[in-house]
């Protein structure tokens, strides 16, 4: 972005911070595509990136104008906007890691066409039975963690540790099934 445009944005934010309501809309229109593109780049790796980035960009813009009274006239509005956006995108990524949103078409144990053939039907049923058997052998605490994962609940640090141990156990149990 060239210096003149940047200076114009800073001047507009200065006016907004001093109470000039007429400067709000032009400034918001200038900042929106920039903030949106920034959030999109930061969140594009996640499965629901496009929708999330628009939501986050909206929240960033609202927060920016909400805090306009704090704007330092010597400061740079674009750097400030990107700093807020980066913080919100990082928080969103952390939230997504703890409780990943899995699209409905990937539900475990079900297929779109369960009886495509008798063999695949039997195979799916056997696999389900083995999985249920393996789950029965888990401790109550491990079952609690599995339940939280399947419900998509956020996991705290303790539960995340238990999840790692549970996954190792389940893997061992399944390896026993296929030997």
């Amino acid at each position: 972005m060239d210096k003149a445009r940047r200076a114009a944005l800073n001047e507009a934010m200065r006016k907004v911070s001093e109470g000039d309501r007429s400067a709000i809309e032009p400034l918001a229109r200038e900042l929106w595509p920039l903030v949106r593109a920034f959030c999109h780049r930061m969140l594009s790796a996640s499965s629901n990136g496009a929708v999330q980035s628009d939501d986050i960009a909206q929240e960033v813009l609202i927060e920016l104008f909400e805090r306009s009274c704090e704007f330092d006239c010597e400061g740079d509005v674009l750097s400030w906007a990107f700093a807020i956006a980066a913080y919100r995108c990082r928080s969103e990524r952390k939230k997504h890691k703890r409780s990943p949103i899995v699209p409905l078409t990937e539900e475990i144990g079900e297929s779109d066409d369960p009886i495509s053939s008798p063999e695949s039907f039997l195979e799916a049923n056997e696999l389900r039975a083995e999985f249920e058997e393996a789950v029965k052998q888990l401790s109550p605490k491990d079952k609690e963690v599995l339940d939280a994962i399947l419900k998509g609940l956020p996991l705290n640090a303790v539960l995340r540790k238990r999840k790692e141990r549970m996954v190792v156990k389940l893997r061992r149990l399944f390896e026993g099934v296929f030997r």
Binding site: A28, W32, I62, E66, R67, S68
Partner: peptide, 17 residues
């Protein structure tokens, strides 16, 4: 493009602050 709903939210948040 910035839509009018977001603009309204921005103005409202600005006035409250």
């Amino acid at each position: 493009d910035l839509d009018h709903v977001l603009l309204r939210k921005i103005r409202s948040a600005y006035e409250r602050a």
